[in-house]
Design a protein around this nucleic acid. Structure first.
Lengths: 335, 335
DNA sequence: ACAGTATCTGAAAGCGCTGTCAAGAGGTTT
DNA sequence: AAACCTCTTGACAGCGCTTTCAGATACTGT
């Protein structure tokens, strides 16, 4: 393992001062063509690569942005991460991901780790950190939040209206003639869950359909909890003709519960999800869902960070949930 | 944005030398209880956090390990990444992920970026870099490869026998009485694809079933290509009773193609996948597949890196593919 | 009481780079 | 020919930390 080359080595064999090499590397000042040539060949022959750590220390900027995600293997977050990565792709910055696992302590720890590395900026994906904390954190370091709306930091949040999204989904079901519509909610602690639940309730009310608490069961956003929730709904009430699941993963679990009982989708029961995960368009039947453009939002978050870092004015980005009708929902047959 | 505190600030207000503070932080030497106390309170009142960049520069170790993955949003890789992250969780190291998108140039670029940051070690997930290059790279930096087997670097590879896995899957189909078994292969350029194809052919031969080239179609490991492949198989040959897909994602696409034509799974056609993605156990019907323990392999890769970095002897880890029988395969009914 | 030893601590040099500052070279102007 | 610019370049002081080295102190044993 040969010692790695330094800028000094380059300077020495190019017979110039380290400053000059630095200037060429960074384009910080004009350098005579001859010296530039010498330096360039020196760099080439040594195979020199600047040490980003040292640059970071000297410049006071690490060229990395920290991303607090919740779980790298969660399909929804993964799409967003891919968007973030793509958004930084041709910039000089690079993202570093750390998972918070939906636990506030882990998220705080993630932020510690990231700030100890002096990341230049932070992207927070969902999570349980409170608004107040993030608001204060944003005073110390440029940050953008994805999937949440923080009062006083509106311009640095990328989110979509969950209520509106849920409303669109449930209205679709109602338009198809359903009125016994169950809801598999997310965990009550999660603000997206409550938003979606509200959307569900609002649309019911708007359509004069009484809200029946028996028709809502909570899960934890994972497939298995959707399956359990569906089973519970089925034993509670047999008049259900449609279910609105707070995310695609639980919809998938619910769909399996139905399959096991021989209940057909969409003929017997219609299902609608939320998120539009990539795989949802390949489920059987392809899932009707409310799309949250995860990748685009991630990409936008990266752009926003870049603007923040370069003190450009922030792009104003608006994302709206969007109903994607596929084959898991159908018109209610009057029986 | 208040200037962030440095070790010197701490030293000053604790009335000790910077060296002493450093010693306490790193446990490098014994320090008298009083000084330790002074320093600790100083750290607490200042809210001091060491600058990892500066530490890295001084120690010559960045405490980060670079991971070259292929696509962060690919379900299989995402599981592996989660395993890696978990494997480093209570170490002082942190992973930094960069995607190569299955393109050699991007992978090389990823390695450049990572080494410019002086990562202490590298984990390579699959990809198209050639063995020779990696073997040479491993001379410069501790590296472990996941999902590939490199001659001369066997101890630093974590992989499973693709042939054996495919064989197990196909044998399962044969045991159920199938002999018209199609294969949806991965891209020919991908070594896992060829391994799985060989496994398929070997088992066919071992059971005296003639290999019919018409029964194999290649996809690109994405869902859509599986759908296309299935459609093609269906037009080519109507006697197919089972299909072995080179991964779960294509199996999912194939399953959709069948659904569209009203062909039942598993009653009319049995399907078996490869990987055992988390979502596969929630497909309709739950997919029979050959499990590749992505998360465990990722975790093992992290452990291996840690061993390498601490010069401990390498754990010898053997992973084997494992048939997971679910509901997408069934005994052939003699018609 | 004194050399010898074991402990703790600070000074200082550096890790690899950047950026300020001032000097030297060459060219203009009057 | 003197005074003044403009350009390019090197010295040098950091960035925030670690680590050697040697000095200071406190204990040994004889």
């Amino acid at each position: 393992m040969s010692r790695t080359r330094t800028l000094n080595d380059v300077a020495k064999i190019a017979q110039v001062s380290p400053s000059t090499v630095s200037r060429i590397l960074n384009g910080t000042a004009v350098v005579s063509p001859e010296k530039r040539k010498q330096v360039e060949t020196a760099i080439a022959t040594l195979g020199y690569r600047p040490n980003v750590m040292a640059q970071a220390l000297a410049k006071g900027r690490s060229m990395t942005v920290g991303v607090v995600t919740q779980a790298i293997s969660s399909p929804f977050y993964a799409e967003t991460l891919a968007g973030i990565e793509q958004g930084f792709a041709d910039s000089v910055y690079h993202p570093m991901f750390i998972s918070g696992h939906w636990r506030q302590d882990k998220e705080l720890e993630a932020i510690e780790i990231l700030t100890a590395r002096r990341v230049d900026s932070l992207i927070i994906l969902g999570g349980n950190l409170d608004d107040q904390y993030l608001l204060q954190l944003s005073q110390q370091i440029p940050l953008v939040a994805v999937g949440r709306f923080i009062q006083g930091l509106e311009n640095q949040c990328i989110h979509i209206d969950q209520i509106q999204g849920a409303a669109a989904g449930v209205q679709h079901l109602i338009d198809l003639g359903h009125h016994r519509i169950a809801h598999i909610a997310g965990p009550a602690s999660h603000r997206d869950s409550t938003g979606r639940l509200h959307g569900y309730q609002q649309v019911l009310a708007a359509n004069d359909i009484p809200f029946d608490p028996n028709l809502v069961v909570s899960g934890n956003f994972q497939e298995h909890s959707g399956l359990l929730a569906m089973e519970q709904l089925l034993t509670r009430d047999t008049s259900i003709t449609a279910v609105f699941s707070a995310n695609d993963q639980m919809a998938s679990g619910a769909r399996l519960a139905l399959y096991r009982r021989g209940i057909r989708v969409p003929e017997d029961i219609s299902i609608i999800g939320f998120d539009d995960l990539f795989g949802s368009s390949y489920s059987t039947p392809p899932l009707t869902t409310v799309r949250q453009p995860g990748q685009e939002m991630g990409n936008a978050a990266a752009q926003m960070v870049l603007s923040l870092l370069e003190h450009r004015k922030l792009p104003s980005l608006i994302f709206t949930p969007h109903l994607v009708v596929r084959e898991s929902t159908t018109r209610l047959r009057h029986s």
